[in-house]
Design a protein around this nucleic acid. Structure first.
Lengths: 358, 358
DNA sequence: AGCCACATTGGAAACGTTTCCAACACCTAT
DNA sequence: ATAGGTGTTGGAAACGTTTCCAATGTGGCT
């Protein structure tokens, strides 16, 4: 049970200096065929592997990327993280994960910790990209960093969804079906600039399309039962014929709640979600929603960071209009007597289609 | 933009040796009040922080735990990982994540990589805990490791659900409602010993409760459309009145598919899931399922590994019977004309209740 | 005065790498 | 034969820590 062999052991066994071993095994510098032979043999016999620690100390790089997301409970982030991890693995980098739980303090603390851990780069979602103590720290160290789901800004690139464009698409869909009074439903509105972007885009779109200004249905914090809170909100807003929820989970909850209040969906209330999680297709009626591609975002963000590290060309970001596609579904129809849409899916742009695997 | 200050810089500024700085800042060994004062001042002025790299090299510990799960697309694993990460953060450890994508080869490779990265411990789900090349590697290095969702074995502890017990509970529920011919629905059966345990427990329970031996409805690989594959399976098994799905997502898909075939749920077909994901409560009828507590499992596994590292007492695992609770729901009722259950939830044991936050 | 115990301190080794550089051997063109 | 090149090689420094150990200083005791 001896500790793993070091380069010194190999050198000894191959009867040469450690510098030579390093050169041979790393394939740089010169070495005679015979020496190479001996070194390889010795390394193989001992089962030698370089210690990343010694290496990191020397090279000042850890082959490690930090990743901070609000929560993995949101399947969108779970998919992003998995895709990023997969991409990084391909390039032999490791991913260190931290969750900020939508808390700006934790967020900053996590960034600080990861920075001190000497990560080579970061992939982060912050609650507000325009003013974030954590991002300031990152910029101060000028470490490769890519945002996800945040508005790009302050010199940091971001892979995200065109929230404003998507909100317009939703507004147009509501308008097409003749809705006038609709609402925007959000959870933790204050802590997510994504949500705010969607809301602002939606307000602009609605007013500009001749609908009334959408109400904001906001759930501050999820203390207690989400369904109850929703019930209260919906009851207070009986005049609305449509609701745009800032994510699919909320949308599903809203459908459930509406039914509980004796309303039919979409007859009494139309509902549109955001994200395109696959469960939206399991309910009756199908959930109309904005389909996004977390996998492409995760992969893209990872490549962007790695490119900065390796000097490769940064991957090109898709056209904003390709970052989402609207999926119609039975949950959206004209207000009034039930006349459900058939829920046929709009085909998303092929290059950006999401392979759903579970 | 000079590089971060090192202990040497602090020593110089405080006009003392680096050994002294190390002692003072780490609070071990003695130092005069005056020296302490100077060192603290110097460190503060420079904004000094220890480099974990140098430290690790010296101490042979990285304060890093590897975590390998099949996929984050499964919300159960996403929650487990998040809970583990949170617990580790509390003790100032980092989590390195890898996904095996249900592939035993990738699984082993990931373990190998993490081991060479010098993680201090591992939290792993493998596809077969009884014969796993990766686990052998771990044991050979005798590194702290805790399994999740695997049967404990070969000396490795595991936090998991009592799959067999849960399967019995499901069988009893079906039996109580008078079902005789039921099936077990699984995806990637071969690659998950969890699924197999549930199936075996279910078979044993059914036969022992006087029901017929359940059919195995298996989806090998999800090439193509899950709903279509399911449609085929359900069509081939028209005689069944109930289906126990090995996870909630499958259960929801089965509900959807059944409706597509013109069957009512639960009238023509009762369905029970596994996991207790919150979306199960958003559909109509509510999904009957086995509720589990991924958060407790993640937290527990993390504590178990950390305890081995710090020498603390390992946290006690809950009684197997407390690792799950059966939740009745509208998707399960007596076969025949629709007479839906009201779907009232069974209260899980209080100490093991899951706070759902999203 | 002499001695010992004890607190404080810093030099140096060790952890496992990479890389600079000097040393050396060998070969070839003058 | 000699100078100059080329290809191999290993010693040593550097990366940032911790910790052993020896050296120094201080005080109290007989």
């Amino acid at each position: 049970m001896s500790r793993p062999p070091t380069i010194k052991d190999v050198a000894e066994r191959a009867d040469c200096g450690i510098a030579t071993v390093s050169r041979v095994l790393n394939g740089r510098g010169s070495a005679s065929a015979q020496t190479r032979q001996k070194v390889f043999a010795a390394a193989a016999e001992l089962g030698f592997e370089f210690s990343p620690l010694g290496r990191s100390l020397q090279s000042n790089s850890t082959r490690t990327i930090g990743c901070i997301v609000p929560s993995l409970a949101n399947p969108v982030f779970a998919e992003v993280v998995q895709a990023a991890q997969t991409e990084m693995l391909r390039q032999d980098y490791q991913l260190i994960l931290a969750c900020s739980d939508y808390d700006e303090g934790l967020e900053t603390k996590a960034i600080r910790t990861l920075l001190s851990k000497q990560v080579d780069g970061l992939i982060v979602t912050v609650s507000d990209a325009q003013s974030s103590a954590g991002l300031d720290l990152i910029r101060a160290r000028s470490i490769p960093c890519c945002l996800i789901y945040n508005r790009p800004g302050n010199g940091l690139p971001s892979w995200t969804v065109d929230n404003v464009g998507a909100a317009w698409a939703v507004a147009r869909a509501f308008a097409k079906h003749g809705h006038v009074h609709t609402g925007f439903l959000a959870l933790r509105f204050k802590r997510s600039d994504r949500s705010r972007e969607r809301y602002e885009g939606y307000v602009a779109a609605c007013t500009s399309l001749g609908m009334s200004r959408p109400s904001l249905l906001e759930i501050e914090e999820q203390e207690g039962n989400l369904l109850e809170l929703l019930g209260g909100l919906l009851a207070e807003n009986q005049n609305l014929t449509g609701i745009f929820a800032s994510n699919d989970y909320l949308a599903l909850a809203a459908m459930k709640t509406a039914r509980g209040l004796g309303k039919t969906v979409p007859g009494d209330l139309s509902i549109v979600g955001f994200d395109g999680i696959s469960t939206g297709l399991m309910v009756e009626p199908n959930l109309a929603t904005v389909i996004t591609n977390p996998q492409a975002i995760g992969r893209g963000a990872a490549s962007t960071v790695l490119a900065q590290l390796t000097g490769a060309a940064a991957p090109e970001q898709p056209d904003p209009a390709e970052t989402f596609s609207f999926r119609s579904g039975g949950s959206l129809a004209s207000p009034g007597p039930d006349r459900p849409d058939d829920g046929e899916a709009v085909t998303p742009p092929s290059s950006y289609q999401q392979p759903r695997s579970r």
